[in-house]
Every structure is written in C-alpha cells, then in structure tokens.
C-alpha cells in the first residue's frame, strides 16, 4: 500500500489559480487588442509584441539571474502588464519605447518590490507615466492609422481630449471645438478618432469588463465608482458652464477612463481588498482624473490619478474592513 498523505483541512482546493486569473484578464483584453490591431495595423502588432516580449523576458532574467528565485513568468502576470502597457502607448511609437516602458514597469515598479503581489504601484501605469514624462512628443502623437479595416484616413494629431484642451486655451468654447473637429459619440463608442491603442474602442473595453465580471475575476465596485464619479463630477461642471467644460459622456468615452477603470484600477495588488475600500479608491481616482482634466496641465489624468490612489491603498486597507460576523 502506498503511503497516504496527511495534511490539515481543507483537503480540496478551488481550481482557480493565479495563472487562471491572469489568463482570464488576458482574454478580457483580447477585444481591445483585436480592435487596436485592426485599426492601427502592423504598428499595433509591433508595439504589442515588443511590449509583451520585453516584459516577460525581463521578469525571467530578473528572477533567474538577479534574485535567483524560482521563475514566476508562468503566472502570466508579466503578459498582462505587457499588454496593458502596449494598449497605453501610441501604436506609432518605436519598439524601444516599449522596451523602456517594460524596464520601468517590470524592473522598477514590480520586481524591485519583490515581484507580483509586493508592488505598491501598478507596473503598467508606472511605465506609461514614465514614458509620458520622458518622451512627451512620442507619447502624444497619434501618427496615422494604417489599419486593416479600410476607409479610415490616416489621422495625425492629438487625442480628442488634447484637442479640447488646446482649443480651450485658445479661447474657443466647447461647441466650437466639437463642431470644428466633427466629434461623434458613436465613433468614440466603436473606434475612436485618436488615442493610444487601448483607448480607441469603448465597446471592446466594456466587453472585457463584462467577461471579467462573469468569470468573477473582479468585483464591479472600483470600476463603477470611478465611472459614476467621473460622470457626476463632470456633470456638475458641465451644467454650470457647458461652454468651458466637456460633458459627462465625452469624459467617459475619451481618454483612458474606461481602460483604466476596468483593467488598471482593478489590479488586485494595487487596489483595496474590501468593497467599501474599493468605492473610496474609485471615487478618489474619478475626482483626481477630472481635476487634472479640467484644471491641470495634462489633457488626461487617469494614469496619474491611479498612481496617486495606489499610494493610499495601505491606508484604505487599514481603515476599511469588511463587516465581521457578530461584531456589529
């Protein structure tokens, strides 16, 4: 008779593992990836591939040669970081930009702290913000769509948010800017007119969100509280002065609000544990995003907002505990 195993209870385990959770996130990201490839063509493929490859390679090298620990590439978290980072870059950006982003994301933001689960800031956003500050020109130029779906002219120029910011500084009103640039919400919902790979289609992001909810990968509170906050905040200002402030729908559909609230703010490691904490976290992100958009120097504030709120997570976790049984 073979020797029996003995261990403390429980004796069975869920099938969910870190790898299966990350795989679900990758699947949820696929619609956005497909849309960006269709829209931007080979340049999107190049940036996606280089970002993922560098992220995975870097994690492999660091665990193997620097930390001398068992390799953690198999948990797929580096793949998720790579895809999210690529979706945050302009597809026209050269491959070395993705490489630098990967170095900052994996090398600085993630592995320095001890790898998955130990980092304070979301690696992909840290990488993106580093690039945004270091290479503002590359990071804000949306140079041409040579996509696989025909009929779209090559567009060059800033994102809708950038156009609005520019216009407001020149003293134009929102209506004038909108009319001059021919913005349409319908277009934003499906394929946006300018933006990083992941920002261009709201619908693709929403599809990913629904998938992750259905698979119970994430809880909806963080995402929804960000979206509601953005809508309410911009709604108030828009009602006060529609000529100076953009409307809520425009704010929800443009920039990284959807992508950020669905994929980046919900990152397990850098978001609060409890639902209550998640709501506070989300409201904070929403408010900071809108403050930057309306009053800051940058046209877009999602990344900064998430990073700032990341730093408050330990505090939120300390004070927002879930309800305990029998301790009213």
């Amino acid at each position: 008779m073979n020797r029996l195993l003995v261990s403390p209870s429980p004796h069975i385990h869920t099938r969910t593992s870190t790898r299966s959770l990350m795989l679900d996130v990758v699947i949820a990201l696929l619609p956005s990836v497909i849309v960006s490839i269709l829209y931007y063509g080979w340049s999107a493929v190049e940036i996606l591939a280089s970002s993922v490859v560098f992220c995975v390679l870097l994690e492999y090298l660091i665990t193997k040669y620097l930390l001398k620990r068992p390799c953690t590439v198999g948990d797929l978290s580096a793949v998720v970081t790579g895809i999210i980072l690529a979706l945050n870059l302009p597809p026209a950006a050269p491959w070395w930009v993705a490489m630098i982003g990967a170095v900052v994301a994996i090398g600085v933001a993630k592995m320095t702290f001890g790898g998955l689960g130990q980092n304070v800031f979301n690696p992909a956003i840290t990488g993106r913000v580093f690039l945004l500050i270091s290479f503002p020109a590359i990071m804000t130029t949306w140079d041409g769509a040579k996509g696989f779906i025909g009929g779209i002219d090559a567009v060059s120029g800033p994102t809708p948010l950038g156009i609005v910011k520019e216009g407001l500084m020149q003293g134009q009103t929102i209506d004038q800017i909108f009319a001059a640039n021919d913005f349409s919400y319908f277009q934003m919902l499906f394929v946006n007119i300018g933006g990083s790979a992941g920002e261009i289609s709201a619908l693709a992001v929403i599809a990913g969100f629904i998938y992750m909810l259905a698979r119970k990968v994430i809880r909806p509170y963080i995402t929804l509280s960000i979206l509601v906050t953005v809508a309410v905040f911009s709604g108030i200002f828009w009602l006060i002065d529609p000529s100076q402030y953009t409307d809520p729908l425009f704010n929800l559909l443009t920039g990284g609000v959807l992508l950020g609230s669905v994929f980046m703010a919900t990152d397990y490691v850098t978001s609060p544990m409890s639902d209550k904490g998640g709501i506070i976290f989300g409201v904070g992100i929403g408010v900071i995003t809108m403050l930057i958009r309306y009053f800051g120097a940058y046209p877009e504030g999602m990344s900064f907002a998430i990073l700032i709120m990341n730093s408050t997570v330990p505090l939120i976790n300390k004070f927002c505990k879930q309800k305990k049984y029998g301790r009213a």
């Binding site: 020797r3 195993l5 003995v6 261990s7």
Partner: peptide
C-alpha cells in the same frame, strides 16, 4: 520508517498540533 506523507505547511508546530507525525 515513514508511515505516511505530511502534506501541510512546513512547520513543526502545525504538524504537531495535527497528528503524531509521519
């Protein structure tokens, strides 16, 4: 000789609290 294989966390304290040992 071993009579069974312990499969819990590697801690004597946990193992001792669980049973007589492997």
């Amino acid at each position: 000789p071993r009579t069974n294989d312990y499969d819990g966390v590697r801690s004597c304290k946990v193992k001792a609290a669980l049973y007589s040992g492997d």
